[in-house]
C-alpha cells in the first residue's frame, strides 16, 4: 500500500502507467456512452407523465452526479496535496477543475431544457438550481486561481483551500430537495432503496453513469499527462520522450 502511495508521487511512473490505461478507458467510455444513449433515446419506454422529454434524464442525472463527485475528489486531492505535498494530487485538482465545470454546465443546461416542457420555465431560483450554479462558480474560481497564480505550488495551495471550503456546498446540493420546497424532484438513485422506475428505464441510466465516469477518467488522464510534460520538462525522461515524438 505504501509503496503504491510513493509511486503515485512519481510523475514518470504515473505517465508510463496512465499511458497503458488510457486507451482502455477511452474505448470503454465510448462504447458505454453510445450504448447508453441509443438505449435511452430509442428503446427505453416513454414516461407516462412526461412523455419523451424524460429521456433528457440520461445525460442530466449522470452529469449532475459527476459534477458533484468531481468536486469531492478535488477536495480530497487538494487535502492530500496540502498534507503530503504530493505533486500528482495538485495536478489532479488543476486538471479536474475545467472538466468538472463543463459537466456542471451540462447538468444546468440540460436541466433548464428539461424544465421548460416539464415545469413550464427554463429557470427558477430554487435551492437545487441555485446551489448547482454556485458549484459552477466554485469551479470557475479554482480555474481563475490556477491561471492567475504563476507559481504552481502557491496555485495548488490556494485551489486546495477553495476546494475544501467549497465542500460546504456539496451537502447543500444533495439535501436541497429535502430541506426546502423546490420544483426539483428528489434523488433518482439512492444506495439504500430500489429505484422507483422500471428496469428498462434505470439500466440505461446506470450504463450512462458508468460511461460518464470512464469518460471523466479518460479526460483527467489526458490533462494530467499534459501537466506532467510541462512541469517535468527539465527532466531527461521527458526530453527523450519529446525528441522521439517530435521526430515523427
Amino acid at each position: 500500500m505504501w509503496t503504491f502511495f510513493h509511486k503515485l508521487g512519481s510523475p514518470k511512473w504515473f505517465y508510463d502507467i496512465s499511458g497503458k490505461w488510457l486507451p482502455w478507458f477511452a474505448v470503454i467510455s465510448a462504447l458505454l456512452l453510445v450504448l447508453g444513449s441509443i438505449w435511452g433515446l430509442a428503446f427505453a419506454p416513454a414516461d407516462y407523465q412526461q412523455g419523451n422529454s424524460f429521456r433528457i434524464i440520461y445525460i442530466h442525472v449522470p452529469s449532475a452526479i459527476l459534477a458533484q463527485s468531481c468536486f469531492m475528489m478535488m477536495a480530497i486531492a487538494g487535502a492530500t496535496g496540502l498534507i503530503w505535498k504530493m505533486k500528482l494530487a495538485d495536478m489532479f485538482v488543476k486538471a479536474a477543475a475545467p472538466v468538472g465545470a463543463s459537466f456542471t454546465f451540462m447538468a444546468l443546461l440540460t436541466g433548464a431544457v428539461w424544465g421548460k416542457p416539464t415545469w413550464g420555465t427554463w429557470w427558477v431560483w430554487d435551492a437545487r438550481l441555485t446551489s448547482m450554479l454556485i458549484l459552477l462558480f466554485l469551479y470557475f474560481g479554482i480555474m481563475a486561481l490556477q491561471s492567475a497564480i504563476e507559481d504552481a505550488a502557491t496555485a495548488a495551495k490556494a485551489s486546495a483551500v477553495l476546494a475544501l471550503v467549497g465542500m460546504v456546498n456539496i451537502p447543500i446540493i444533495k439535501y436541497s430537495v429535502e430541506w426546502w420546497n423546490t420544483l426539483h424532484q428528489p434523488a433518482t438513485f439512492t444506495l439504500t432503496e430500489k429505484p422507483a422506475m422500471p428496469a428498462e428505464m434505470w439500466i440505461p441510466l446506470l450504463v450512462m453513469v458508468i460511461g460518464f465516469y470512464c469518460f471523466f477518467t479518460t479526460v483527467i488522464l489526458l490533462r494530467t499527462r499534459n501537466e506532467i510534460l510541462v512541469r517535468e520538462r527539465r527532466t531527461n525522461w521527458v526530453k527523450k520522450l519529446v525528441t522521439k515524438r517530435g521526430a515523427l
Binding site: N52, S53, R55, I59, S102, P117, F215, V219, L222, N226
Partner: peptide
C-alpha cells in the same frame, strides 16, 4: 420525440459538443 424533439435533441446536442470539446482540447494542448 412526441412533440418534445426540440428539448431532447437540444440537450443531447449540447452534451455531445461538451464531450467533444473535452477530448479535443487536451489533445491539441499536448
Amino acid at each position: 420525440m412526441g412533440g418534445h424533439g426540440l428539448y431532447v435533441w437540444l440537450s443531447y446536442g449540447v452534451a455531445a459538443l461538451i464531450f467533444l470539446a473535452n477530448v479535443i482540447l487536451p489533445m491539441k494542448k499536448k
